[in-house]
Design a protein around this nucleic acid. Structure first.
Lengths: 106, 106
DNA sequence: TGGCTATATGGCCATATTACCAAGTATCAA
DNA sequence: TTGATACTTGGTAATATGGCCATATAGCCA
C-alpha cells in the first residue's frame, strides 16, 4: 500500500515537471487563452520548431494540453481550467519569498 | 521589456521545478500539516539523510519552506497556504487525463 | 504525381539532476 | 574536553533534459 502512495506522488511530480520550464509555462499561458498551432507557438516562444514540438509532446503526455488536427495544422489547447490557481500560487510564493528575504536583510 | 517577461516565466519555472520531484512533493505535503525536523522527514521519505537535506535546501531556496533551528534540530515548515490548490489541480489533471485516455480507447 | 507547408522524430552534445558516501560543522550532555 | 547526535556540504557516477540540425511524415494543391 506504501507503493500506491509513492506512485501517486510520482504521478503528481510528472505534472509539476512538465510545468517546470519557462517555455512550457509560457505556452500553457498562451494556450489557456486560446488554442494555437505549433507555428504560432514557435514564433511566440522563439525557439526551434522542433524544440517547441517536443515541449508540446511533454505537456500532452501528462494531459495538460490536447491537440486538434486540422489538415496539416495541429491546434493545441489547455485541457484543465485550474491553471490560474497554479500561476497565482506561484506568484504568491514569489512575493512572500521576496518579503522574507527583505526582512532577513534588516 | 521582453526580457522582463522571460525572467518572470523563469522565476515561476524555478518554483515548479522545485516541486517536480516525488520526494519533495511528499515533504511539502507533510510539512504543510506540521513542521518536522530532518530526521523525521528522512524516515518518512525513505532516502539517505543527506539526500533529504538537499531536497529541503532546494525547497528553501525558492521559498516554499522555511527553517527554524532549535539546538541541533532544524524544523522545516511550508511558508505559503496555497499548496492545496496546487495539489487539487494536479489531481484534476490526473483525473481528466485518465478519462481522456479511456475515451480515446473506445 | 510532385512540390510545398506544417509537424514530429531521431541523433547528438552540453548541461542539469539525483543519489549515495564521506567528511565537515554545530549542539548537547557527560 | 569528548563523544554522540543532527544536519549540511563536497565529491562523484549514473541518468535525464534541452536544444538544434537533419530527416521523416502527413496534408494540400497544382
Amino acid at each position: 500500500m506504501e507503493e500506491k502512495i509513492r506512485k501517486q506522488y510520482e504521478a503528481r511530480a510528472k505534472i509539476a515537471k512538465a510545468m517546470a520550464h519557462p517555455s512550457r509555462l509560457l505556452m500553457l499561458d498562451l494556450l489557456q487563452k486560446q488554442e494555437m498551432c505549433v507555428g504560432e507557438l514557435t514564433e511566440q516562444v522563439g525557439a526551434d520548431q522542433s524544440t517547441v514540438s517536443k515541449h508540446l509532446a511533454i505537456l500532452k503526455e501528462v494531459g495538460l494540453v490536447d491537440v486538434r488536427k486540422a489538415g496539416a495544422l495541429s491546434y493545441y489547447r489547455v485541457t484543465c481550467g485550474c491553471l490560474d490557481g497554479f500561476f497565482s500560487c506561484m506568484e504568491t510564493v514569489l512575493l512572500s519569498d521576496l518579503k522574507g528575504r527583505q526582512k532577513s536583510l534588516k
